Amino acid sequence: MPQTETDVQIARPTVLQLMAARYGFDFDPAQDEAPAVTCTEERIAAALQTAVRSALEEMLAGAGPVAATAVTQRWQWLASVRVGEHAAQKLCISLGTTHSAQLEQLINRQRPPLRPGKHKPEPLRIDLRALLLEKTVTAADIQQLHVGSVLPIHLERARVALNGQAMLTASVAEHQGKLHLTAFETLE
């Protein structure tokens, strides 16, 4: 069942840090144990969620009415919120079906129109690099190398970078004399 309501999730440390700044006490989630939940905290958290939801609704109102037959995927936005000098905390906004459709309408209006038939769309270029091995050797070892020398290596999982950002690891396999990357896993 699709979610029709937009959901805003603000991390509890963010609310506590805002309360600390507002009411003049110190709270550091890395060092302090979180206090028991109070009615004031619940009220402030609800007010923050309402404020974020209202700002989102105001921005999306420019999309105009959405057709009842509009089928869309649900969009989710993940961000970091920093209060003062504290570490950033997570903010998650999961758009409901109506807000997702409004967002898509706004995006479609901002895209330049395609000129039919004149230009083929260009493929998306992605720089993919795989680091298969890093080995540290001494200068003495390098001086002893000669033609035909063999450096023993242990091939582990390769790190794969997309557009310069390390994103994946992969197993390296050999097939018909060629190396292949397989069994990809995301880096955490």
Results as ranks from 00 to 15, higher is better:
L78I: 09
L78S: 13
A79K: 03
S80T: 13
V81A: 10
R82P: 02
R82C: 08
V83L: 04
E85S: 14
E85K: 10
A87W: 06
A88P: 07
A88Q: 09
A88E: 13
K90T: 14
K90P: 12
K90A: 15
L91Q: 05
C92A: 11
I93K: 00
I93W: 00
L95E: 03
L95F: 04
G96D: 02
T97E: 11
T98K: 05
T98M: 07
H99L: 06
S100H: 03
A101R: 00
A101W: 00
Q102R: 11
Q102V: 03
L103Q: 04
E104Q: 10
E104M: 06
Q105R: 15
L106V: 07
I107Y: 10
I107E: 08
I107C: 08
N108W: 02
R109W: 04
Q110T: 12
R111W: 01
P113K: 05
L114N: 10
R115S: 14
P116K: 12
K118Q: 13
H119T: 14
H119V: 14
K120A: 12
P121R: 13
P121Q: 13
E122T: 11
E122L: 14
P123K: 11
R125V: 15
A130D: 07
L132P: 06
L132C: 10
L133V: 05
L133Q: 12
E134A: 11
E134T: 15
K135D: 01
K135F: 00
V137L: 14
V137C: 09
T138W: 08
T138K: 08
A139D: 05
A139N: 05
A139T: 07
I142R: 08
I142N: 00
Q143D: 13
Q143S: 12
Q144R: 15
L145N: 02
L145T: 03
V147Y: 09
S149R: 02
S149W: 04
S149A: 15
V150R: 09
I153Q: 01
H154G: 11
L155Y: 05
L155R: 09
E156A: 08
R159N: 07
R159D: 09
V160K: 02
V160P: 02
L162Q: 05
Q165L: 14
A166M: 10
A166G: 10
A166T: 12
